[in-house]
Design a protein around this nucleic acid. Structure first.
Length: 478
RNA sequence: CGGGGCAUAGCGCAGUUUGGUAGCGCACAUGGUUUGGGACCAUGGGGUCGGGGGUUCGAAUCCCUCUGCCCCGACCA
């Protein structure tokens, strides 16, 4: 029955990648552009991003951050000051070499991230311990010359938010990095209904130039992991490279301690991959551009039905993000499929029979469940239902993730599970980067994180069999 | 960046093997009948066959080249 509904979409089980691209294109989240690796985010996809921005920005403000904007271009000399950082980003920097027809005296990097230019400014702005902390965020685009791209998950240009903070003490910076990771976790789980594992990255996987990188890792429904957000404790690496000093209370000149943290439009890809099904998108109500759609069933009483749907639409539109699909050129069945494909959480059907009984029909996108409510109860029912859908979507995804975290202490089994089922593999790791590398070479899985939640127990490294108290999650990832 | 595949109307495809001047379904436009899970009839519009170059009397078709997309690796949010 499922397959009969949305003919344009390749079934998930047949070809997950094709399914993913089909959904994005057909639901009009994005489209390919004439520029290699760059996509156009269409209004429906951008509305999702705007909702993400709004909800996150509120959280940033609530934790004391302010927005600012820094230049798109970064002089080459500036970019090169922090050695580890340059090395990390060098292969994917896009360069501006000419202004008009004139060759530039110094090449300009199109920002792949803004640490360097922001640090440059911070060194001017910060003089005293009284200037600290500096808590700035910017919403912008960045460019990374990627070799292989995929809509939302990896594009040459993408939209994101990058927070950059400077603190007086090491402890303050650590606290900030963890605070923002928690902001991300809360946002992603509560508002996007995407369950995540929180933890720390290994040295191999951490951000170029960071002391520590913290991450939230989500699991896509094909069993691959996706880094959904990161928060870095930058230590004093950048402060030293960019000379960001302040005079402390004790009269000593000191380097600041910094953090940076970001999430990107990649999250939209995660929403598609975690929640979507063979009918298309499923968008969590909290961020859905359209939370409910009214589909009138005209029968032979167009005017009667139109009056009623208009009346209800007007009543509801101040309370929920709702649309009235009163187009006459499509049949109700066509509209059902269309809105399901686009992931609208609730459909409200209103026809002559309903009007007679003073009721409406509600249909949930997450479960397909269909039921009637009396007209006076519609608003309260709808609100409750949206909350229920939000929770149900999270619970479903959470269950899937938990079912796909497998504790394994035997390397052959590790290999087999990564091949056959994917998902996260929870195991012991001795901390040696060589062992980590070995896993990657042998299985294709990378160390996603060292989770916070796990009690450290004594075990043996999955590779070298040395005694270890580090628990690590490995997975194939996007 | 390596290996493989694909590119013909908005979308999905046929035509390419064997060169002869482009077709089908859906979508779109107009009119009418319809409307509780992708309605039907009639009429109509839409193509530099991904770009460039070559072979030929003649190229969607053969050759070269470039670009984009998809899959698998390496690199990354």
């Amino acid at each position: 029955m499922e397959n009969d509904f949305v003919k344009e979409i390749t079934p998930k089980t047949e070809d997950f990648s094709q399914w993913y691209v089909d959904v994005i294109l057909k639901a009009e989240l994005a489209d390919y552009s004439p520029v290699r690796g760059c996509m156009v985010i269409r209004p429906y996809g951008y509305a999702l991003w705007e909702n993400i921005q709004q909800l996150l920005d509120d959280r940033f403000k609530a934790t004391g951050h302010k927005n600012a904007y820094f230049p798109l271009f970064i002089p080459e000399s500036l970019l090169q000051k922090e050695a580890e950082h340059v090395e990390g980003f060098a292969p994917e920097v896009a360069w501006v070499t000419h202004g008009g027809n004139e060759k530039l005296a110094e090449r300009l990097a199109v920002r792949p991230t803004s640490e360097t230019i922001i640090c440059n400014m911070y060194s001017k702005w910060i003089k005293s311990w009284r200037d600290l902390p500096v808590l700035i965020n910017q919403w912008c685009n960045v460019v990374r010359w990627e070799k292989s791209t995929k809509p939302f998950l990896r594009t040459a240009e993408f939209l994101w938010q990058e927070g950059h903070t400077a603190h007086r003490t090491k402890e303050d910076a650590e606290e900030e990095a963890l605070r923002m990771l928690e902001v991300y976790r809360d946002f992603v789980e509560t508002d996007l209904a995407l369950p995540v594992v929180t933890g720390e990255k290994s040295d191999n996987e951490k951000f170029a130039g960071a002391s520590k990188t913290y991450t939230i890792e989500a699991l896509m429904s094909d069993g691959r992991a996706l880094q959904a957000g990161t928060s870095h404790n930058l230590g004093q690496h950048f402060a030293k490279a960019y000379d960001i000093t302040f005079l402390d209370q004790d009269g000593q000149l000191k380097y600041v301690w910094q953090t940076s943290w970001g999430i990107t439009t990649r999250l939209i890809g995660a929403i598609v991959m975690v929640h979507g099904d063979d009918r298309g998108l499923k968008i969590p109500p909290t961020i859905a551009p359209i939370q409910a759609v009214i589909v009138p069933i005209f029968g032979r009483q167009t005017e009667l039905v139109l009056n009623k749907t208009n009346e209800i639409f007007t009543k509801l539109k101040t309370e929920v993000r709702i649309e009235l699909d009163d187009r006459d050129e499509y049949t109700p069945g066509w509209k059902f499929n269309e809105w399901e494909m686009r992931g609208v959480p609730v459909r409200i059907e209103i026809g002559p029979k309903d009007i007679q009984k003073q009721q409406v029909v509600l249909v949930r996108r997450d479960t397909g469940e269909k039921f009637t409510v009396s007209e006076p109860e519609l608003l309260s029912c709808l609100k409750t239902l949206l909350n229920e859908i939000q929770e149900n979507m999270f619970d479903q995804a959470k269950r899937f993730m938990q079912e796909n975290i497998r504790e394994i202490d035997n390397f052959d089994e590790f290999k087999q599970v990564i091949d056959a089922k994917r998902g996260f593999i929870k195991t012991h790791w001795c901390g040696n980067p060589e062992c980590e590398k070995f896993v990657k070479e042998q299985t294709g899985a990378t160390l996603r994180c060292i989770p916070f939640s796990e009690q450290s127990t004594i075990g043996r490294c999955i590779v070298c069999d040395k005694e270890s108290n580090i628990i690590a999650y490995f997975a194939k990832s996007y």
